[in-house]
């Protein structure tokens, strides 16, 4: 057996603890969570509501902070970065896909996709090329000028995916990307994520309640009461 790139942990969580506090109430989510994910993996995270799936993604995205433990991504300690550094890190290395798309209604589809590129110092021409390329990938070329408010849920989610990959991140975090879609649209979106993983080498972590969605992934993590209860490896 050779050591492939997938075996070197790209993401490593060690002893991560997280407790939400509101007033005197304490809601422990994780107590010493460990996790290791290789580069280029497609992970599905499943589990009952309230088990901490979104909290996990928030920690990985650096928009929430753990109480203790280390979070390492691509050799960088996310938990030791300040807020500005985490923002810059997100802009550079991460794409995020939301359940409810979270597109801005006053912008066209193409402008929504272009948004993350405003943070980069690249010319308008290069920006437009990149936008057109990713709209091509998600099968929406020619619809760039349309307002997302006039699109179907499946189309909106594809705009959301285009926005997530336009800055060419290595890691995609998806929180129930098909949770609001009908079966057909969901399958299209899942096929697209599979393509991004296989052909473009994106590491994908996808939270989902849908077993068919999980079937697209290479590995499924089951989260319950703040711990991974089993670790299925789908053999290739």
């Amino acid at each position: 057996m050779t050591i492939s790139e997938k075996d070197i942990p790209f993401i490593a969580l060690n002893g991560v603890s997280k407790t939400y506090r509101s007033g005197s109430e304490r809601l422990p989510i994780f107590a010493g969570l460990d996790l290791s994910i290789g580069k280029g993996e497609f992970i599905a995270v499943m589990g009952p509501s309230g088990s901490g799936k979104s909290t996990l993604l928030n920690l990985l995205a650096g928009i929430d902070q753990a109480d203790s433990g280390s979070i390492q991504i691509g050799g960088q300690r996310l938990d030791q970065m300040g807020e500005a550094a985490r923002s810059a890190w997100r802009a550079q290395h991460m794409g995020i896909v939301f359940q409810f798309y979270n597109l801005l209604p006053m912008l066209t589809a193409a402008e929504n996709v272009e948004l993350p590129l405003l943070l980069k110092s690249i010319s308008g021409r290069v920006r437009r090329e990149r936008v057109s390329k990713v709209l091509d990938i998600v099968g929406l070329n020619g619809r760039g000028r349309q307002s997302p408010t006039k699109m179907s849920g499946g189309q909106q989610q594809r705009v959301g995916i285009a926005r997530a990959i336009v800055a060419d991140p290595t890691l995609l975090l998806c929180d129930e990307p098909t949770g609001d879609l009908d079966r057909k649209s969901a399958d299209q979106v899942l096929a697209m994520l599979g393509f991004l993983n296989r052909e473009l080498g994106k590491t994908i972590i996808m939270v989902t309640h849908d077993p068919e969605a999980a079937a697209q992934a290479g590995r499924t993590l089951h989260l319950d009461k703040g711990v991974f209860v089993e670790d299925e490896q789908v053999m290739a």
Binding site: A61, I63, E83, A84, S87, A88, W89, R90, A91, Q92, M94, I96, F98, N102, L104, L115, P116, L119, R163
Partner: peptide, 16 residues
């Protein structure tokens, strides 16, 4: 608020 949160998750920093 929601939208500003989205911008922040996309990597927009506070000064921006």
């Amino acid at each position: 608020r929601f939208e500003i949160g989205v911008l922040k998750t996309l990597g927009f920093r506070s000064p921006q």
